[in-house]
Write a protein that binds this DNA or RNA. Structure first.
Lengths: 169, 169
DNA sequence: GGCCAAGTTCAAATCATTTTGAACTGAAAT
DNA sequence: ATTTCAGTTCAAAATGATTTGAACTTGGCC
C-alpha cells in the first residue's frame, strides 16, 4: 500500500473551480467548432496550475481513454496545448496555450476558409450559366453579383482577422 | 385536363443552375448555423427570378411539407425571405432578401451573443474562487485574466460587426 | 353544413457526429 | 522473454439534430 503523494480526493473548491472552467469551454465548444470532449480536455488543462498527465485528464473528466487520446491529438496538432518539457519524467504532461487564438484560428482555417474556397468554385459555375428569359436573367445577375460581393469581401477580411489574432488577444 | 400554364418539366439548364445555387447555400449552412434544409429553401428562392409558392419549393427541392413549413417559418422570422405582396393571388409567394446579412445577423444573435452572455456568468463564478496554493492561484489568476480579456474584446466587437453589417454588404 | 386544398404540428424515423470500449502496439520493468 | 503499463485505433453504441409523414387545423367554396 504505497503512500499517495497526491491525494486522489481533491478539495471541493478545486472541483467546483474545475467544473466552472470546463463548462465555460464546453459551452463555447460549438462556436469553436470542436466536440465537447475536446473543449473539456482543454478546459481541465486550463484549470490546473500544474500540467496534467493523460490519466489525470481521463479521471478528472471521467471520459474514455479513446476520447482523451483523440482529443489530446487534436489539441496538440492545433497548438492549443503543448507537452511540458520535463527531462526525467516518464509521463508527458500537458499545459494549455493560454491564448485562445490557436483554437479560433483552427476554426477559421477549418470552417471558414474551406467554405470560402468551395464557394469560389460554386460561384464560377453559377455565373457561367444564368438560365431563363432576358428579364429573369437580369434579376439573377444582380443576385449573383451580390453573392459575389459578399464572397469577396469575406475572403478579403479573413486574412486580416487572422493577422489581428496573431498580434493581439 | 387543365392546360398547364407552367410546364412541370423545366429546362435542364435551369435545373443545373438551381442545383448549383442550392449547393452554394447548403455548403454554407453550417457556417450560417442553419439546417441544410433551411439553406436549401433559401437557395431555391434565390435561384428563381419569380417568387415561389410553398408547393413549388417543396417539389423543386423534393423535401417534405413539414420541412418546408418549418424552414419557411424560420426564414420569414429572420427576414431572410419575405412574402411578395400580390393583391389577387391566393397563394403566398416568397422572394429572398437579397442581402445575406439577415442570415448572418441571425447567426451572430443566436450563437455568438448567447455564448458571450453565458460566458459572462461563468467568468464571474470562476473569478470568485480560485483554489489551491498561492503559487497555483497566481497562475490561474493570469489565465483567467486572459479569458476575461478575450471575452470582453469579443463582446465589444460584436455590436461593431452588427453595425457594419447593417450598413454595408 | 360538408368538402377540399394549403399549411402546421409533433412524435417517430433517419442521419450525422461523437463517444465508448475492447483489441492492439510499443516500450519499459522484472 | 514475459508482464505490465501507457496510449492508439477503429468498429460499434450512444447521442443529438434534422427530417419525415400522418393527423390535425384553417379557410374558402359548393
Amino acid at each position: 500500500m504505497p503512500a499517495p503523494l497526491k491525494p486522489a480526493v481533491r478539495a471541493a473548491e478545486t472541483l467546483a473551480f474545475e467544473a466552472a472552467v470546463v463548462s465555460f469551454f464546453t459551452d463555447a465548444a460549438d462556436i469553436l467548432g470542436v466536440p465537447k470532449s475536446v473543449a473539456a480536455i482543454y478546459g481541465i488543462c486550463f484549470a490546473s496550475p500544474e500540467p496534467l498527465t493523460f490519466s489525470e485528464i481521463e479521471s478528472r473528466l471521467d471520459i474514455s481513454k479513446g476520447s482523451v487520446s483523440q482529443g489530446l491529438k487534436l489539441l496538440k496538432e492545433v497548438g492549443a496545448i503543448r507537452p511540458v518539457a520535463e527531462e526525467s519524467a516518464r509521463l508527458e504532461r500537458y499545459e494549455p496555450d493560454i491564448e485562445l487564438r490557436k483554437l479560433v484560428l483552427h476554426y477559421l482555417e477549418q470552417r471558414v476558409s474551406t467554405q470560402l474556397n468551395a464557394g469560389r468554385g460554386r460561384i464560377r459555375e453559377i455565373k457561367a450559366a444564368l438560365p431563363g428569359t432576358a428579364a429573369g436573367r437580369a434579376i439573377l445577375k444582380e443576385r449573383v453579383a451580390s453573392l459575389e460581393g459578399w464572397h469577396s469581401k469575406s475572403a478579403a477580411l479573413l486574412p486580416l482577422i487572422k493577422g489581428a489574432l496573431k498580434l493581439t488577444v
